[in-house]
Amino acid sequence: MRNLLLLLLLTMLSRSTLAELAVITHMKNNIDTLSTQQVQDIFMGRTRVFPNGKFCLPIDQSSPLRAEFYQKLTARPVEQINAYWARIMFSGQASPPQQLPDDHAVLQTVRENEGAIGYIDKIHVDNSVRVMLLLK
């Protein structure tokens, strides 16, 4: 019983700390790399374009990966991010990025949209997308 609990804890730790997240874009995106700041500005709705001026579409997740992503990106808990978006939404001027259920759906959407930008576990990255930033 004790061993089982320890195992579960280890599994959770490995999921949250050991997972490496990749910020990905469409293959046709000609930007080499994006900084954490630039990714943050895109996902927090501060900007709607890439540094090269092309329109961007940030894609969020509703999976547990979301909390990890924002933690790594902004060093803020996800609740704060939610509160931020709640205020923005209340003003009616903007809305948070669209949420997709998992990495697979994100991959699929990024592959299909030229301006899309999303995040997935690094292990799911393939050659169909371009990695802009790795969040450890």
């Binding site: 927090m44 709705g45 501060r46 205020r87 923005i88 003003s91 009616g92 001027q93 903007a94």
Partner: peptide, 17 residues
């Protein structure tokens, strides 16, 4: 904090509030 959000998100509605 709200003002910072408004400034950050360039959101005039929040700012005006």
């Amino acid at each position: 904090s709200t003002a910072a959000i408004a400034a950050y998100s360039n959101n005039s509605t929040i700012g005006e509030d």
